[in-house]
């Protein structure tokens, strides 16, 4: 199959790695190959935490510049930070709530209006879907299900290589039992919203 490249951007603690784990399990269930590169260690302490994923026959998970098919960003500024990995063919799913780093509070760095980051991406990428994943997660009953809102929204993208049914099965195996209901709800809400927009 043609390789499908997914770049997940976020901040340490947002559940980037967990999201990719669910995606990976779903791929194993479907019988397609997946490789991923993730960041551990010092950068996890509140730093930018990107994960790079290729589904298909690729051996190497690191995405070449401009090579991203789908950008999933848990945070607006982190989405724009990934611009060099994107092209005018990239589709992006972005959570609208910013996480302001301490450098901005200290006045040694600047965080523009998140809308600016999003419109910049809208002007350059093929399609950008913006979600209030935090509110959707809260409505679903668990703020920590934010990452499953994002995964659900991604699953609605036309070329997304793994079907909903595999993802849901993988979620049931990977998430704590008491959190599954909220996470499934979050996933479905993300899917519906994104489906409408796409």
């Amino acid at each position: 199959m043609k390789t499908y490249s997914i770049y997940i951007a976020g901040v340490g603690g947002q559940g980037v790695v967990k999201t990719s784990m669910v995606l990976g399990k779903a791929c194993v269930k479907k019988g397609v190959n997946i490789v991923m590169s993730e960041i551990h260690g010092m950068s996890q302490r509140g730093g930018s935490v990107p994960a790079e994923i290729k589904i298909g026959d690729a051996l190497n998970p690191v995405i070449e510049n401009g090579g991203t098919d789908l950008l999933i960003s848990f945070e607006p500024a982190e989405a724009l930070r990934a611009i060099n990995k994107c092209s005018n063919q990239t589709i992006a799913i972005i959570n609208k709530s910013p996480i302001i780093p301490f450098t901005v509070s200290l006045g040694i760095s600047q965080y523009l209006n998140p809308e600016e980051y999003i419109s910049e991406l809208k002007s350059k990428l093929k399609k950008v879907v913006v979600l209030d994943a935090e509110s959707i997660a809260k409505e679903s009953g668990n703020i920590l299900s934010l990452n499953m809102v994002m995964l659900g929204a991604s699953a609605a993208v036309t070329d997304f290589p793994v079907g909903k049914e595999y993802l849901i099965e993988a979620m049931k195996e990977s998430l704590p039992e008491k959190a599954i209901e909220a996470n499934l709800k979050a996933f479905e809400s993300g899917y519906e919203l994104s489906h409408k927009e796409l």
Binding site: V11, G12, M42, S43, Q44, R45, G46, G47, S48, E64, N65, G66, G67, A77, E78, L80, R81, I83, N84, C86, S87, N88, Q89, I100, P101, F102, T103, V104, I108, S109, Q110, Y111, L112, E116, Y117, E120, K124
Partner: peptide, 19 residues
């Protein structure tokens, strides 16, 4: 290779930090 994209907008520095 793909046509490269870039941005002129300022992005915040996000170094690691005490939790």
């Amino acid at each position: 290779g793909k046509a490269l994209l870039s941005t002129d907008l300022t992005l915040p520095a996000r170094p690691p930090v005490f939790c």
